[in-house]
Design a protein around this nucleic acid. Structure first.
Lengths: 353, 353
DNA sequence: TTGAAAGCGGTACCAT
DNA sequence: ATGGTACCGCTTTCAA
């Protein structure tokens, strides 16, 4: 219709010259270039991506696979990815691969195989052996955002560090009975949550609190955290004084539960999360901040680098979450009025007063 | 590499025959078909989508444009769309067109123009004149999920009805001082919220409560609803007894605010939303249920029908939200113990007892 | 600096 | 029922 041939005809040149003029490759006299550009503008020429892809082998499109679209972390990563891709003029094809769904099998079997993209970003996918194999087999660069991270490049936060830091914060505030809230041991326990639980456990051990380690299971969602917390907090006798939540959604659920039950936060219960969710501020949630959006952006950069140079070695970017102290956590001993800042504990002179 | 030519060679037939055998079009002897299929399986043949698209003019891909990815409604719609597309073997290219962002202009200008899809679904896009024009110009079928709905096919709920129903519910419970919470008059006021406000206003008028009409402005988000409600509820003297929120996120924000301020819900304040958000249950929120997921699915069906037959007339599907009564709403007069069911008000015999 | 022609990997029409 | 061939729209040698 309004192909490059038409542009060439109008500019009075050959297809090849038009292609060069438009693509910026090869020699074209300034004069010709101008004429071609004018002609292109005139008819509103837009190259057919399919034809370009077919001819060049590049799709100008990248694929994104993730198991959830509606959770904060994933939506944020997706927006980060989209943002950069938009700048670069690249398309984004989305695959929603819910764990254990029939659709997931099709995605790995058919959709990824036809590989309509130059590279793939897998977000929190946690693929099993078979899936990972299929992922690798497509022969395109893959970057994972959160993952097991051996077979592909990866960007994520240091979960162990984040959970340790969170736990240490509570310990420094004098808490001993600290529970970890989130994840299910029996059913599918996401690796992220397991790693975070591991960090919590390690911190407890290091503080000589191995005996106090306690895992309160819950869905890793806001209502999940709420339900589990309602349960756990109802047991007044055996209640913990602080909770490390596997993520902010769970933490917020716990705070809402505490409020409902009349348990003061942070007076009677300290709650700390990991994320710095968009709701964190409104709940005054102390948390370890990560930026999924940033992770998405970084993932794109890494992917594009690998696409540009397939020999580029695989990389792993592991960011450190930063402690953001708000007021969902407080010292357990009311006599100690402690102000905690990132990196340590500050006991103002009030302690002596 | 492992193209159809290779398959043909191995099966000892011509490219055309191989194409027919694989594509299911035209005559092929069962015998040959089997041989071709075997050959294809042997080398793991996957047709190049680009080549197919170029040859057929069909991309097997549909585009989705939406302004937010991280809000409940949008994420749900997206999942609904994805679900059906997956079944049909179609790809989904996502465009995140935030209002008034530089990216948005590029999407409309460049991305949509190159039109790498057979059809487009625009979710809550509310395009301006210029954008709408660009949308139409691409010459592909477009279906809107929520929209102004004149230029394209559309699927949405009847916002006017939903808001009226919500307001009527409160009126039936004896409330008079009912405020509408959500949306900003001065800044960009989304058409959805405006329509809902209109429904509220109409219901108030019909009940002779025109003088009580009150719009509490807020961001249409959970923290937005929270902030606005904290403000509004602090004015103890001039407080309303019930709130119609423009959506569940706002409603939930209001409930959280009320709890924080010690205002009993529903004792001192009734709150009703529109959505039936995934958090609605945990907040016992009375609301008008809509299913964005379903809307996404329907949109795909409509779009595919239009792609199959471009002469298909434009359609508008307008669903009715259904009242789900939980316990965030109650009769204002404690003497009237009313049970409200969808479609009317039921006053159990308790009234006479 | 420009043009002709050969693909890229399929589909589909027209003979056979 | 099968094969030959033109063509989808663009890029890219290779010659001129």
């Amino acid at each position: 219709m309004s192909g490059i041939a038409e542009v060439a005809r109008r500019a009075g040149v050959s297809k090849s010259t038009a292609s060069r003029a438009l693509g910026g490759t090869g020699y074209v006299s300034d004069d010709t270039r101008l004429r071609v550009e004018a002609a292109a503008a005139e008819i509103g020429y837009v190259p057919s991506t399919n034809a370009v892809s077919l001819a060049t082998g590049k799709t100008q499109n990248i694929g994104v696979v993730m198991p959830y679209l509606n959770r904060w972390f994933f939506a944020e990563v997706l927006e980060g990815i989209q943002e950069i891709l938009l700048e670069r003029g690249l398309d984004l094809t989305l695959y929603d691969a819910k764990p254990a769904s029939p659709g997931r099998a099709r995605i790995f079997g058919d959709f990824l195989a036809r590989s309509r993209f130059d590279g793939l970003i897998a977000v929190g996918l946690e693929p099993d052996h078979h899936e990972l194999e299929q992922l690798v087999r497509i022969g395109r660069p893959v970057v994972s955002v959160v993952g097991s991270g051996d077979a592909t490049s990866i960007v994520e936060i240091d979960d162990d560090y984040a959970a340790r830091r969170a736990t240490d914060h509570l310990i420094a505030l004098g808490h001993r009975r600290i529970a970890f809230l989130g994840g299910q041991t029996d059913r599918h326990w996401a690796q992220v949550d397991r790693r975070r639980f591991g960090g919590y456990e390690a911190a407890m051990q290091d503080a000589g609190l191995a005996d106090s380690v306690r895992h309160i299971e819950s869905d890793v969602t806001l209502p999940g955290g709420y339900a589990a917390a309602v349960d756990a907090l109802s047991d007044t006798r055996n209640r913990c004084t602080a909770v490390v939540a596997s993520c902010d959604e769970v933490a917020i659920g716990a705070i809402i539960a505490a409020r409902r039950l009349g348990v003061q936060v942070p007076g009677q219960l300290s709650v700390i999360g990991i994320d710095d969710h968009e709701y964190a501020e409104m709940f005054s949630l102390t948390t370890l901040r990560q930026s999924p959006r940033e992770q998405g952006r970084v993932a794109v950069d890494m992917l594009l680098a690998q696409i540009a140079d397939p020999d580029e070695p695989r990389t792993a970017v592991r960011m450190k979450a930063k402690l953001i102290v708000r007021s969902s956590t407080a010292a357990i001993d009311p006599r100690v009025s402690a102000t905690v800042i990132d990196g340590g504990l500050d006991i103002p002179s009030a302690a002596g007063a």
